[in-house]
Structures are given as structure tokens and as C-alpha cells.
Simulated scan of single mutants.
Amino acid sequence: MESQVRRRVRRTVEASRQTILETAERYLAEEGPHGVKVQRIARDLGLTDAAIHYHFGNREGLLEALLRFSGRRFVDELTLAMEASGSPSFDLGKAARLLTDLYERRGAARLAMWLILSGWSPSGGGMLQPLVDWLHEARTRRALESGLTAPQLEDSQKLIALLSAVTFAQALSGDALLRSVGLQALPREDFLSWVTDLLEQES
């Protein structure tokens, strides 16, 4: 046991933080914010609670770091998706799927809402800026090719904000959002496709 602890101490600070956040993200996806507990993460990794507090201060610090960690992963995956497209075209459907993965499957929407309701206020910004830039570039190119005036950046920002709001709300409410307006039989995926089609018309 002692030799295992000594080996873990040799990890770099960044490697230790990464391992802790990856474990926390797994619990977040499985159980939501209530499942992210310092004691169980420490037990899983063979660490002490104090070791996790050393890196994040307290549980709230861990949760805030986890939200930023998920956001950075989203940006990395978005960048890869844009590079893999092989063209400057923009696919709102792919953007919606990436946002759904972040907000719903990984639990980022529940975590962000939990933190906000606990009094936390986000200090950063711009996580969705690459998405805005991608959309705005495509909209500008289409407009110029058609001999039209280039769109305003603010309009592209609003379109992405709306798409983010819809995917965020769906992640929190599940099917309740659609049931509230009598759409009991409509799959959420179909509704999201309808939203992206509508936004494509605006873009």
C-alpha cells in the first residue's frame, strides 16, 4: 500500500488533476452532480481526500473545474469535427449532436445548473465561440456568393445561443419539454432536427 502511494505521489500535478477529473466526469455522466463525491473518487484512485482538496480546494472547486474540463473537451472535439469536414461548410446538425453529448450524456447541463442554483456565477466565456466562427464564416460565404450583404456577427451569435439553449433545456428536462405541449410521441432527436432545419433557414 505504501509503495502504491509513493508511486502516485510521483505523478505530475497536471497528470493527477487529469485523472481525478476523468473519474469525476464518469460519475457525473452516470449519476449527476450528486454522484461526484470527493471520498469515492479518492477511494477509486487510492488517494486521500486531502490529496483531492490539494488540487481543487473543496468539492465546489472540483465541480467548477469539472465543468471547465468538460467545456475544454467539447472545444477540442468541435475543432476536430471542423477539421474533419474537409471544407468550410457548416453542419448545424453535427453541432447540435456535439452540444447534446456535452450537456446530456456527460451531464454538463445538470452540473452547470446545480452550480448556478448553489450561487455560483461563471467567470469565463467564449466556449461556443469556435461554433459561432464556423457558422458565421459559412453564412458570410453563402451571402457573398449570392451577391447579398454579409450577415452580422451578432446574428450568428444569437443562432448558436438559441441552439445551445434548446439542447441545454432538453438535457435538463428530457421528454418533459415536448410533453408539456402535447408532443408525447415525438422523439427528442426529431424535435432537435426540426430546430436545426429552422435555424438553417435563418442562416
Rank of each mutant, 00 (worst) to 15 (best):
T140P: 00
T140W: 02
R141V: 10
R141I: 09
R141T: 13
R141D: 12
R142I: 03
R142Y: 04
A143Q: 08
A143H: 04
A143R: 08
L144V: 12
L144E: 13
L144N: 04
E145Y: 01
S146M: 03
G147L: 06
G147H: 04
G147M: 07
G147K: 06
G147Q: 08
G147R: 07
G147Y: 04
L148H: 09
T149C: 06
T149R: 13
T149W: 01
A150P: 11
A150C: 07
A150H: 05
P151I: 05
P151Q: 06
P151A: 02
P151N: 05
Q152N: 06
Q152I: 02
Q152L: 11
Q152H: 09
Q152A: 13
Q152T: 05
Q152P: 00
Q152M: 08
L153H: 09
E154S: 10
E154Q: 09
E154K: 10
D155Y: 10
S156M: 07
S156F: 03
S156D: 06
S156W: 04
S156T: 06
Q157W: 02
Q157G: 15
Q157F: 01
Q157M: 13
K158M: 11
K158A: 15
L159V: 13
I160M: 09
I160H: 05
I160C: 12
I160D: 08
A161P: 00
L162T: 15
L162E: 10
L163K: 06
L163D: 05
L163E: 06
S164D: 15
A165W: 00
A165N: 14
V166C: 07
V166P: 02
T167S: 11
F168A: 02
F168R: 07
F168D: 03
A169T: 13
A169N: 12
A169I: 00
Q170C: 12
Q170N: 13
Q170W: 04
Q170A: 10
A171S: 13
A171T: 06
A171E: 08
A171D: 07
L172V: 09
L172D: 01
L172S: 03
L172W: 02
L172R: 09
S173T: 15
S173A: 15
S173N: 13
S173Y: 10
G174V: 07
G174Q: 07
G174E: 07
D175M: 12
D175S: 15
A176N: 12
A176F: 10
A176Q: 15
A176K: 15
A176P: 01
A176M: 14
A176D: 14
